[in-house]
């Protein structure tokens, strides 16, 4: 993972191949395949999903869409996600975190870290793809787990059955920090009011 930026795809993959055995080659093959499949059947959960640059297939980014359901407080939201793929993918899960801040019990507001068992090593299986992973994260938006929250404030609101309070807080941040064209995916013309924002603001 050290030599991520600046090198060509050939050099990159071969260096990985040498250091990590055949696994990086397998990962590269699989990622290429996933990228092809995305073209033929795009992922419903995202506005955009793909590698940050043509040269490095191990660094992806995505713009996640809020659920279609109008009553969902995340409806109409857009978030930029950063995806780092380990060289032994698909045996190990990709590392995904939110770049656009999101107010959710299982996502750390400052770091964007996501608490989802699928993304932890234990429950990951090679059957999942980046596309299904994005769908799982979108599903997490509609059903938060309150047992081990990363955002304690909003989780406490839900725990105290203050659904109105929690959802209005969520709606506020969904509109306030809505993705506004940051990252490589900025070419997409979907830009609606909302300041956007980076983590830590």
């Amino acid at each position: 993972m050290a030599s991520r930026s600046g090198s060509t795809s050939q050099g990159n993959s071969s260096s990985r191949g040498k250091s990590k055995g055949s696994s990086a080659v397998n990962a590269l093959k699989r990622l290429t395949r996933e990228l092809q499949d995305l073209h033929s059947s795009p992922c419903e959960a995202v506005l955009h999903l793909g590698p940050v640059s043509e040269e490095d297939l191990f660094q992806w980014e995505a713009v996640l869409k809020g659920p279609r359901d109008h009553t969902n407080p995340y409806h109409n939201g857009l978030w930029l996600l950063d995806i780092t793929i380990p060289p032994n993918y698909p045996l190990a899960p990709p590392k995904v975190h939110f770049v656009t801040p999101i107010c959710h019990p299982n996502v750390h507001f400052q770091t964007g870290e996501i608490c989802l068992t699928l993304l932890s090593g234990e429950h990951w299986a090679p059957t999942y793809t980046l596309s299904t992973t994005m769908a799982a994260i979108q599903q997490l938006l509609s059903m938060p787990g309150l047992d081990s929250p990363l955002n304690v404030d909003v989780a406490n609101l839900y725990r105290e059955h203050d659904k109105i309070g929690a959802e209005s807080l969520v709606r506020f941040w969904t509109v306030e920090k809505r993705w506004a064209g940051e990252g490589k995916a900025g070419f997409i013309s979907e830009r609606t009011p909302g300041s956007g924002g980076k983590l830590g603001e």
Binding site: D37, T117, L118, H123, A125, T129, T132, Q139, L140, M143
Partner: peptide, 16 residues
Amino acid sequence: MDSEDLGRVSPDVPST
């Protein structure tokens, strides 16, 4: 976390 069920998003079926 009880997002166990979230993990069961159907994986890609072999393409037809």
